[in-house]
Amino acid sequence: MRKVAYAVSLLLFAYLAYTFYQYGRAVPQMAEVTGRAGLVSTNVTIDRLDPESGKLLYSLKAQRAVHGLQEIALEELEMAFFDSQLQEVRALQGIYRQGEELVLLPRDFTATTVDGFVLRGKDAIYTVQEQRLVSENPFVLTGQEGFELSGDRIEVWREPARMRADGNIRGKWSFDP
C-alpha cells in the first residue's frame, strides 16, 4: 500500500512540475507587459512649462491617474491653460499622451473659454501643439446673452479663434437691437 501511495505522489509531483513548466513558458516577460499595468497615483498634477521661457503653459489635475508606458489615464480631469483664450477643460476621463502632447477625452467634457463660452460634448481629441479640439460627436456651445449653438461635429482652434461645425447646425443669437 505504501508503494502505491509513493507512486501516486511521484506521478502527482511530475504532473505539477510539467504544468508549472508549461505555464512558466506562457507568461510573457514583464518588460513586454503594456496597457494599464503600471503605477497608480492619486491627486495628480502634471505641469507643462515652456522649455525656453520656463512659463507654465498648462496644468493637468486628476483625482486618480494610471501611468502606462505611453500614456497616463486620468480620472476627473481638469486641464487649465495659462496663456490665451481657452481657460479650462474638465472631463470625467482623459488620456494624456505626453510624447504627442495629446489629450483624449473619451467621455463627457466641458471646455470653458476666457470670454464665457462653454462647450459641452464627449469623445474629443485635444491637440496641445495645434491648440485644437475636435469632436465627431454632438455638441452644445453656449455663451452670454442667450447664445446657443448645437450640431453633430465640431472643430475649434484657439489661435486664431476659429471654429467649424457640421451636421444639424442650430444656432440662437441675441444681438443688440
Binding site: E145, G146, L149, A161, D166, S174
Partner: peptide, 24 residues
C-alpha cells in the same frame, strides 16, 4: 436675461472666424 433681438439659424455647416466677426 438678454433684451437683445433673438435670431435663429439652421444649416448643415458653419465656420466662425471670431477675429473678423464672421460666421459663414
Amino acid at each position: 436675461q438678454s433684451n437683445g433681438v433673438v435670431y435663429t439659424i439652421e444649416s448643415n455647416h458653419l465656420e466662425i472666424n471670431a477675429h473678423i466677426g464672421e460666421s459663414r
